[in-house]
Design a protein around this nucleic acid. Sequence first.
RNA 1: GGGAGAUUAGCGCAGUUGGUAGAGUACCUGCCUUACAAGCAGAGGGUCAUAGGUUCGAGUCCUAUAUCUCCCACCA
Length: 877
Amino acid sequence: MLDKSYEPQKKESLIYKKWEDNKCFKPYSDFHKDSNQENYTIIMPPPNITGQLHIGHALNNTTQDFFIRYKRMQGYNTLWIPGTDHASIATEVKIIDSLKKEGLSKEKLGRDEFLRRAWQWNDKYGGRIKLQLKSLGCSCDWDRCAFTMDEQRQKSVLHVFKSLYDEGYIFRGEKLINWCPTCKTALSDAEVEHIDEDSSLWYIRYPYADDSGYLVVATTRPETIFGDVCVAVNPEDERYKDKIGKYVVLPIINKKIPIISDNYVEKDFGTGVVKITPAHDFNDYEVGRRHGFEPIKIMNLDGTMNEFCGKYANLDRYKCRELLVADLKSLDLIEKIEPYRLPKATCYRCHNAIEPMMSKQWFMNMQEMAKLGLDAVDNGELEIVPKRVEKIYRNWLENIKDWCISRQLWWGHRIPAYYCKDCGNSMVELSAPSKCSKCGSDHIEQDPDVLDTWFSSALWPFSTLGYPDDTADLNRFFPTSTLVTAQDIIFFWVARMVMLSKKIMDKTPFSKVLINGIVRDDEGKKMSKSSNNGVDPIEIIEKYGADSLRLSLLFGNGTGNDFRFSEEKILEDRKFINKVFNSGKFLELVLSQTYETKLDKSKLNMFDKWIYSKLDEAITEINKLVDNLDICQAVNKMYSFVWDDFCNYYIEFSKPYVYNEDKEIRANACAILKDVYLNILKLLHPIIPFITEDIYSNFTNELIIDKSYAESLGKFDREKEKVEKIISLIQKIRETRLSYNVAPAKRISLVIDKSNISDESINIINEAKLVLSKMINIEKIDVLDSIGNDFIKFVSELGEFYFYKNEVLDTEKEREKINKDIDKINSEIKILESRILNPNFVSRAPQQLVEKEKSRYEYLLTSKKSLEEKLHDLDKA
RNA sequence: GGGAGAUUAGCGCAGUUGGUAGAGUACCUGCCUUACAAGCAGAGGGUCAUAGGUUCGAGUCCUAUAUCUCCCACCA
């Protein structure tokens, strides 16, 4: 028995358990090793264990689950691998925060104890995430669940690191890198966020060494003056041409530095003179390198000034700036200070300012890798949806630089590099060497640093399948099929997966990438942890059920478009599920009144054939849309098929048959209704898995998740057309009744003029007699030889029809209505005339269209004429 | 500074090779019709941001402009 009403809360977890117990989420090939079904594989973007999932995750994972369930039912050998990400820096920041609350610090705890805490953290939050995914209904194979730092994934990371090191793609060196003084680690370029901030442009006077006045330098960072190695002007700048090669004296520290020329300098900005600080600015680093200057480091790793800065040493850089500017002012070396808005580089995790610093780090050379990434889209191995995202992807790869992969953190994959304390030799090995390969010393130390968290994520498509081991999974499921993810990690993750998969596995890791839009709150703001407007999917699921949430996420949202989340939308969409549920109730009711249901294909009536045709049409369309990753339109199609075609019409059509006195008719009608309904459940299962499973189990002993996708009994064009005509007649009758204010309960007669209607129409109407009487309260159908004045006429596609005046008439209403109709027709006639009377249209538009428009025009003219006649008759009467 | 997207009914949105604007919801009218009032049947409501252009024909293609959002970026 179905529940009294749709109440999802109680049942969903039980249903999920049933799926798990029956191993429904496992690929078919796990049980049938020699299965040759085509594979369909998705790797889940592993959520960070920093916290819990929000609606954006729910959107991505619902999308993935939709594809997986759909493909599973279509007979693919499906595998969806779930997992979580250790999120090195993000998690470490969180743990440090929580330690702070206990009055602890990471240094106090020590590395081992800190890591123990981190693993505890993983147990807690990783577990919560899995729970959330299960509540959402995700049908992923939990036995294959991976964690970016579990044993197998550590092994993958080691192997990839070593092989890229051996090939020379990974190297160690001292370069200018992004340094977060708060997190105290290096960051990659991708991890730096630029935020516009109000600041100033300081114009500082640099006296010439020969005492002939001074040069004015405009800078946004006066405190880096200690690291200046020269000042630069544009070689074409007339103002300074004769100064090139001369020297200026750095204020405060009184150091002589040269004036050089470089094209990098823009004449029109500031004073056209730039101070060059190679150790603390990326452009200056390049300029310095071009002109052979050694960078001078002036900052400590915590963002304070170093001993090189005299009395400013150990001051925070901003404090230093303040004092220095004051000092310069008192020396009259500040020409002016202008307000200036500049993009401030900040850490994507702690949001504090980062500093470019010289530091010894590990890097990955990306030049060749980027080509691999570009090839993938160029030669069609990888399709990115929506298409526009491809440009973003391409642009990033075209401007890529070396990837700084080492982090001065503890939570992460420790770099497998070992240094000999005696001879300084460095070794990269899969396991810790006991002796130095060069001098034989056993004073060996592992590099204390860990890898960028995105290094391990980049290997996800093959690390999850068992790389570097030669596993059955790797052979069977790599490369995977579709990747579904959010747009903010295209660079961090998607591009790097493509590059590394091509490099390591020699294959593009997936053939399609679907990039979902951003989830916003109901005010249109981006949902994020920092704005604290995130919504926990569990909360919504408890309130409305997972199916409602899933439907709401998938329905009415264009592919790749941003999505505005609101509870109202969930309430709106839930109505659809309720509708599906209630149609199940109806089926249950009619089945309970029937002893036998047997589907006899030879006994389909025209309505049955119509619904099967519509079903067939819907399936075909949905297949096409899903293949194009257009879930939005696919769900739209399901919605209108189920609600409009099935519920509003077919169920009503079926009533005279399922309640028929003839047992045989009744049995067959019930069987057909059931068949169509079960197919509808299959159609909908990928969007709303729980309710469809629940209802399906009510009518069968099988699990819908395992069944094949919806399939129609056939396609019947002639009957389809007939029923469409019936439908339009029904609509016309309803409209006419309403316009004459005929009470819905009043049974009236439908009249046909025998001389003015085709035999076919009469046949169709006879066939639909039962239905018409039921749906629009038609008492009887009179076929008359001729029609006089006592009738109300209306036209449908089946021909001309009449009501008895005395049954329906209200003269005033009638006149109003006819006038309205004439107005409508007139405006359409106008539009048509503008075309068919236009010789250009007639000669250049497709002939078919011209014909169509012409016949429509003729039809309108006759209709108009008959309406005018009617009006005339009315006036007479 | 560069790039991308958005702008369609009161609201939040769909609209895939250019061919007379669509569903949901809200509002209005009438119905508690034996699956469903979380429903049924109807009605109204849009010069598709603006201005040009291409075309017989533009929400759809092109060019500008405006407003909003997002991404990228070293003009010190």
